[in-house]
């Protein structure tokens, strides 16, 4: 699937990730994130979202191999970069925050030390400057008494505070792209909302490109301009959030949307939809649609290569069915 965006900050084409030669975790994933845009990657757990993000950062654990036509960031080819060059980019132009705020900070060092080392590494800043910058950012992410927090250790902070620290730390060098991998999943519901509001605010104020990974369509609706729905290592549908939500075309996207109640639309007492089965493990050499075993509209031809179809505008999807199949089936 080619991204049709003009001059994206990040563009990934045909990314494939193989785990130990036994599992195809990502199968030809393509994605483009534009400057100043929030792009959500959504899907069930185990469908290859995080591993795609880690591939972009080149942070995959040992034994996991990525290949792609290209992974381009601001025109530079990340695939061609050495680990040393890549490490100069990470934390500087591209930052990432993770799902587990409780364990993502090093328990042995203070917040200030962990934040300032980013600036020391990438800007050759001295400790004082770096600490000032860290305090400024802590205030910016809504942490009171930042000066005191700098001297504290992670275990002295709540989960929500730690995630704020992670966000502030990611912003130390004014990155162009922030990848947030399920940043609110491990948090309380009220804290989730605060963190999302913060991310949204920062994205707008700083003009960040934000690649937000989530399994929650509610988050997508709130945060994103564009959405890529992932299933079994593929982007099965992508487009502007409005288009995709208004006319979900891939059976998986429809299934996902049917699972959330919509006030005014869902009738009381009417059962919510669900998608039977689980995300399959895809072995090497697998062909055809990864969703066919769980799909209500599956046909024999789904075992062959699936076409990428255009649904108008930037909206495209990966299925044998024509764009208007939903209306046809509803009729």
């Amino acid at each position: 699937m080619t991204a049709s965006l003009q001059d994206p900050v990040l563009s990934v084409a045909n990314l494939r990730v193989s785990i130990g030669g036994r599992t195809e975790a990502v199968r030809g994933m393509s994605l483009a994130v534009a400057r100043g845009e929030t792009h959500c990657m959504v899907g069930e757990s185990g469908c290859g979202k995080s591993i795609s993000a880690l591939s972009v950062m080149n942070l995959l654990p040992r034994g996991i191999i990525r290949t792609a036509d290209h992974i381009r960031f601001q025109g530079q080819d990340l695939l061609a970069m050495s680990e040393r060059q890549m490490s100069r980019l990470r934390g500087d132009k591209i930052s990432m925050i993770f799902q587990e705020p409780m364990t993502s900070l090093n328990p042995a060092y203070t917040i200030g030390s962990q934040m300032s080392e980013v600036l020391e590494r990438h800007r050759r800043a001295i400790r004082r400057q770096a600490m000032d910058r860290a305090a400024e950012l802590l205030a910016r992410v809504g942490i009171t008494a930042p000066g005191m927090r700098l001297g504290q250790y992670p275990h002295q902070l709540s989960g929500g505070l730690r995630q704020r620290v992670m966000i502030a730390m990611a912003l130390m060098c004014d990155p162009e792209l922030l990848i947030a991998d399920e940043p609110t999943t491990a948090l309380d519901v009220t804290v989730q909302a605060q963190i999302l509001r913060l991310l949204q605010k920062l994205q707008q104020e700083l003009g960040l490109a934000l690649l937000l990974i989530t399994h929650d369509l509610g988050v997508v609706a709130r945060m994103a301009q564009r959405v890529s729905v992932m299933y079994a290592g593929e982007v099965v549908e992508t487009g502007a959030v409005g288009d995709v939500f208004a006319a979900p075309t891939h059976p998986y996207t429809r299934g996902l949307l049917d699972c959330i109640p919509v006030p005014g639309k869902t009738q009381t007492g009417e059962p919510l939809g669900n998608i039977p089965g689980m995300v399959p493990r895809i072995p090497p050499g697998f062909a055809g649609c990864g969703f066919r075993d769980r799909c209500m509209s599956a046909a024999p031809e789904c075992a062959q290569a699936v076409p990428l179809r255009d649904a108008g505008g930037d909206h495209s999807y990966l299925c044998r069915l024509p764009p208007d199949w939903t209306r046809a089936s509803a009729a």
């Binding site: 942070l59 490490s87 990470r90 500087d92 900070l105 090093n106 080392e117 730390m169």
Partner: peptide
Amino acid sequence: RTARAKGL
């Protein structure tokens, strides 16, 4: 992983 993501 965080430390690597910071580019250290």
